[in-house]
Simulated assay, not measured.
Amino acid sequence: MFLSQKTRIPFVFFSEDQANAFSDSARRLLTWAGEEYTDCCYKFARECISRIEAPGHKIPLDDAETLLALLGHCCLTTNTPEPAHTLWSQCVRILSQRICELTREAA
Rank of each mutant, 00 (worst) to 15 (best):
E47V: 11
Y37E: 08
D24F: 10
I49A: 08
A26S: 04
T31E: 13
D17S: 11
A33V: 01
R28C: 06
Q18R: 03
I52W: 02
E47H: 14
F44N: 12
I49E: 09
I49R: 08
A21Y: 00
F44C: 07
R51C: 09
T38N: 09
E36L: 14
I52Y: 05
A19W: 00
E36M: 12
Y42F: 14
Q18L: 02
K58F: 11
D24L: 12
T38Y: 11
K58T: 06
S23P: 06
E47Q: 15
C40S: 15
A26N: 04
E35L: 13
A21S: 07
F22A: 03
D17L: 06
D39R: 12
L30F: 04
R27I: 04
A54H: 08
H57Q: 11
R27P: 01
I49F: 08
F22S: 00
A54M: 07
D39E: 15
E16K: 06
S50T: 13
E35S: 12
A19N: 00
R27N: 11
R28G: 01
C41D: 14
A45Q: 08
A33R: 15
R27Q: 10
S25H: 05
Y37W: 07
F44I: 11
H57R: 11
K43E: 15
Y37H: 11
E53D: 14
R46A: 15
A54W: 01
Y42S: 13
I49W: 10
D39W: 10
E36A: 14
G56L: 05
R46G: 11
N20C: 04
F44H: 11
N20T: 10
K43Q: 15
C40K: 14
C48M: 09
S25Y: 03
A54I: 00
D39F: 10
S25F: 03
C41F: 14
E53G: 08
R51Y: 08
D24P: 00
C40F: 15
A21L: 05
A26G: 03
F44Y: 12
E53V: 09
E35V: 12
W32V: 09
L29C: 00
E16L: 05
R51E: 10
A33I: 02
R28H: 10
S25E: 02
I59R: 03
Q18W: 01
D39P: 07
S25G: 01
C41Y: 15
G34A: 04
L29F: 04
A21F: 00
C41L: 12
W32R: 14
S25T: 00
A54N: 11
A33N: 06
W32A: 13
D39S: 11
E36K: 14
R51I: 01
E36R: 13
K43V: 12
A26Y: 03
E53Y: 05
C48H: 07
E16Q: 07
A19V: 00
A45E: 08
S25N: 08
I59N: 05
I59D: 05
D39I: 10
S23A: 11
I59G: 02
Q18Y: 00
Y37S: 07
E47T: 15
R28F: 06
A21H: 03
P55V: 03
Q18K: 00
A54C: 06
T38D: 10
Y37K: 05
D17I: 09
A33E: 03
A19E: 02
S50Y: 06
R27W: 03
